[in-house]
Write a protein that binds this DNA or RNA. Structure first.
Lengths: 341, 341
DNA sequence: CTGTTAGCGCATTCAT
DNA sequence: ATGAATGCGCTAACAG
C-alpha cells in the first residue's frame, strides 16, 4: 500500500495531526518539527490520498463539463473546443481539473435514465458543473431545474431561464440580425442564411424582426440537419445563388463556411465577385485562414469558457458572485469575402 | 448532509452490510429484503459516495489522459481530438470517465516541477493513464520510466521504448515513405515534404532511406515550427513549386493541407494540374471535404484511442493483456489531388 | 442469509 | 503548539 500520513508522521517523529496541519496550513507549527515533516514528505514523495481527504471535506477538486448528446462527437465542433480551452485555461491555477461527462446514446448501458452528470454530483465526484446546451435541451430538464433550486454550483452556457444558477452567453439572435443588417447596408437584397437545425426557433424570430425592420431584404433560411452534408449544401447553393439570385451567404460556423468555399470553387462562383460570404467564427482568426479570407462575426467562446469556469470556482469557494449572468459581445471582423453591391 | 448508506439501511429495516451487498452484488440477499432496499434507494435517490467507497477500494473509476505541453492547446489538433473521441467511445460502457491532465507552461503555479499526472496518480485520483507524446518527450521521462517499472497501468501512444507498459502506434516513418513511393510511382521526381518541427529525427531517416531506395527522387523537407504560419508556407510554396520545380506537396495534417489549398488558390496553382497534394488525415473523410478532394493517408487515430482505452481498462481490471503493443495500419485513400506525370 | 465490526486516510475537534 | 480521539461512508472479514 502507498505511503500515508502515518508514515510521514512516524519518520518526522510527530503525530499525524501535525502533519495534517502543515499540509493544510491550518495552524502554526514549530519550525523545527515543520522542517522534519517536510523532509519526511520529500523522502516518501508523499501526496495526500484524495479519498481520505475527500471523505472529510466532501470535495474532489474536480468539476464536470457536460455536453448534451449531439449529432456528432463533442470534439467535432470548434465551439465546444473553444469552450473547453477557455475552461482549461483557468482550472490548473486553482488546483482544479475537469472531467468530461458525455451522454451516451445507448441508454441500456446505464443504470438509470437520468442525465449522466447527476450521478457524478450525487457521488460527489465533482464539486460543480458547467454545461453547454443548445436551447431546448433545458426543456426536459426537471433534474436540471431541481439542482438549480437546491443551489448546486452550476453555470450554463446560454440564455438565462431560471432565477438561480449562473450563465454566460452571447446574443445569438443579435449577431445574426447584425449579419443581415451589414449585408443590407452593403446593398444586398436577397441572402441565404444557413443554420443548424436546432436553432429553428431563433430563425423564426429573426425572420419576423427583419421583416419589419428591413422590408426590402429577402432572407432565405436553410436549416441543416447535419453541418457536414456537403451534398445538401451544394444543391442549396446551386439553387439559391444560381437560380434564385441570392448575392450573399451567411454561415453559422467556420466548418460550414469551409465547405461552402469548396462548393463555390467547384461551381466557379468567385467570392466575393459572384457571391459574398459572412461567417460566424468561434475561434479568433479562423476566417483569416481561408482563401479568400472570410469576414466573420467573432464570438469569444474561449472567454465564455474561462468566464464560466471562473464563476463556478468562485461559488465553490463560497464567494458571493455578484454578476451571475454575463453576456459576451460579438464583433464583426471584416476581411475579403463581402462585396458592396 | 447527503443521504448515506445508513439512511437506506434504516428505511429498509436492514443493516448497512445488506445494502452494501446489494450495491455490489457481492452476495445473495433474501429477495424480500432486497426489494425493500431497492425501494429505499429509489426513495432517497441514493448514490454511493465515492470517497467512502474509494477509501476502501482505492479506485476512482477515472483514468487520466495526458498531453505533454505543446505549442498549441491540445484541443487544436485533429490528432488529439480523434484520440479523445476514441477513448471516450469505450469509457462509459465500462463505467469509467476521463480527466484531462494538461501541463501548464507556468510552472511557478505548481508545487513541484514534476509532470502533473504524477500527482493524480499518487493522490489516487486516477486508476490508470493514457498519454500521448511526441517522440522525444519521453527522453526526459525519469518519472515515466519509474512508473513503468512499478507496473502502473499505462498506455502510451507511440513507438515502444520500454519493456513494461503498453502502447499503440502507427508507423509514422512507413507511411511517409509510402507517400513518397506513391508519388514516385506516379512519375513525380521532385517533391516537397512538409512536417512539424518535432519530427526532425524521422525526416532525416526518411531522407536516407529514400536516398538509396529511390535515387532519382529529389525530396525537399520543410519543417514547420508552427503549423499555422500561413505566411511561411506561402513563401515556401512559391519557392519550391514556382521556382524549384517541385510537382507535389506532402502535408502532415489536414489543417496544414487546408492552408496549402488556400495558398495554391491564391497563387493560381491549380490542383492537381499544376501541383499535386497528398495529405495525412487523422479523421476519416477529412480530405473529401476539401475542394478538390485531397488524396490522403488515413491514420486511424480514433481506433488507436479506443484500443488504448481498452487495453488500459483491461489491465486495471487485472486481466492479462496478451497483446501489449499494437500497431495500426494506415491506408491511402485516393481522391482528386494527385496527378500522374 | 445477515448483522457487527474493523479499518481505509485524513481533518478536526478537544484536551493538554 | 501538539497529540489523542472521533468520524466522514463504505466494503469485507467475521461471527452467528
Amino acid at each position: 500500500m502507498a505511503v500515508s500520513i502515518h508514515d510521514v508522521a512516524r519518520r518526522a517523529g510527530v503525530s499525524i495531526s501535525t502533519v495534517s496541519r502543515i499540509l493544510n496550513n491550518s495552524a502554526n507549527v514549530n519550525e523545527k518539527k515543520a522542517e522534519a515533516v517536510r523532509e519526511a514528505m520529500e523522502y516518501y514523495h508523499y501526496e495526500p490520498n484524495q479519498f481520505g481527504r475527500g471523505l472529510v471535506k466532501q470535495k474532489s477538486n474536480m468539476i464536470g463539463v457536460y455536453f448534451p448528446s449531439q449529432y456528432e462527437s463533442i470534439f467535432e465542433l470548434t465551439y465546444n473546443l473553444e469552450l473547453l480551452k477557455g475552461i482549461e485555461r483557468v482550472l490548473p491555477y486553482q488546483d482544479y481539473s475537469m472531467v468530461l461527462i458525455n451522454e451516451t446514446t445507448e441508454y441500456e448501458h446505464r443504470r438509470q435514465a437520468q442525465p449522466r452528470y447527476l450521478e457524478f454530483i450525487q457521488q460527489k465526484k465533482i464539486d460543480g458543473l458547467i454545461l453547454s446546451a443548445a436551447g431546448d435541451t433545458f426543456t426536459r430538464g426537471d433534474v436540471f431545474s431541481k439542482l438549480l433550486e437546491e443551489g448546486y454550483p452550476m453555470v450554463y452556457i446560454g440564455k438565462r431561464f431560471h432565477q438561480n444558477g449562473m450563465n454566460v452567453y452571447a446574443q445569438f439572435e443579435q449577431y445574426h440580425l447584425q449579419m443581415l443588417r451589414e449585408l443590407h447596408a452593403r446593398g444586398h437584397r436577397k441572402v441565404l442564411m444557413i443554420e443548424g437545425g436546432y436553432h429553428k426557433i431563433y430563425m423564426d424570430h429573426i425572420a419576423s424582426v427583419i421583416g419589419t425592420e428591413l422590408p426590402d431584404l429577402e432572407v432565405r433560411f436553410l436549416l441543416l440537419e447535419n453541418n457536414h452534408f456537403r451534398r445538401h449544401l451544394l444543391k442549396a447553393v446551386e439553387h439559391y445563388v444560381g437560380e434564385d439570385g441570392c448575392t450573399a451567404l451567411c454561415s453559422p460556423t467556420i466548418e460550414t463556411t469551409r465547405i461552402l468555399l469548396g462548393i463555390c470553387a467547384q461551381l466557379s462562383y468567385r467570392i466575393p465577385e459572384r457571391v459574398s460570404v459572412v461567417s460566424v467564427e468561434h475561434r479568433q482568426g479562423d476566417g483569416a485562414l481561408e482563401y479568400p479570407a472570410v469576414s466573420a462575426f467573432y464570438v469569444p467562446v474561449i472567454d465564455m469558457g474561462s468566464g464560466a469556469a471562473d464563476m463556478l470556482l468562485r461559488t465553490i469557494r463560497g464567494e458571493k458572485v455578484e454578476d451571475d449572468s454575463v453576456e459576451y459581445e460579438t464583433k464583426l471582423i471584416e476581411r475579403d469575402s463581402v462585396r458592396n453591391l
